[in-house]
């Protein structure tokens, strides 16, 4: 029960406690502002700072999100020079570390074959070796778990691409 004060008001007021609450409230606002700014910049996924590129322009390049959220839609976007095709096909090999915790939604265009190898999975796409504008291959997926994901994607005739992602919970 609150004490009756000199001015006759029975109220439990404690300015020291209120000042402490106000300080904590301001810290909370600052944290929220920082998180919001981080979100807008892409530090929580889906923004300019989350986008990453790998590879050699004119041969094989990859655009992906280095910061991503678990269970959120994501993609690996490859740009492939048709000159990398051999015998009418283009082979893209993913380290299994990249695919272990991934739920693949779709691959555009669909691969002709998928082959399992020691530690990797190979996707084989129909592609004619020719000069001209590059081909696009998209892997659309959701990360099933969170944490650090790192692995290589390789293709004949191109330098290995290193994918380094952090998946937020």
């Amino acid at each position: 029960m609150a004490q009756t004060r000199d001015d006759g008001l029975q109220i439990e007021q404690d300015r020291t406690h209120s000042r402490r609450e106000w300080r904590i409230e301001r810290v909370g606002w600052a944290v929220m502002a920082i998180l919001l700014a981080a979100g807008l910049l892409g530090l929580l996924g889906y923004g300019p700072l989350s986008q990453a590129n790998a590879g050699e322009p004119g041969k094989l390049t990859l655009a992906y999100d280095r910061l991503q959220r678990a269970s959120a839609p994501s993609e690996y976007h490859f740009t492939v020079a048709p000159s990398l095709a051999r015998d009418g096909v283009f082979r893209l090999r993913f380290d299994n570390a990249l695919l272990d915790e991934v739920e693949l939604q779709s691959i555009i265009p669909e691969p002709e074959h998928v082959r399992a190898g020691p530690g990797y999975t190979e996707y084989v796409f129909a592609m004619e070796a020719a000069e001209g504008s590059p081909a696009r291959i998209q892997f659309q997926f959701e990360q099933a778990t969170f944490g650090h994901v790192r692995g290589n994607v390789t293709a004949d005739g191109a330098a290995p691409l290193v994918i380094d992602q952090f998946i937020l919970p």
């Binding site: 001015d7 109220i11 007021q13 406690h17 209120s18 609450e21």
Partner: peptide, 20 residues
């Protein structure tokens, strides 16, 4: 106190408490 908070007097004996 922490979960519910405490009341804050903003006007005491007719005087405005700017901080509050």
């Amino acid at each position: 106190r922490w979960l519910e908070g405490l009341p804050v007097l903003v006007l005491r004996n007719g005087a405005w408490d700017k901080e509050a």
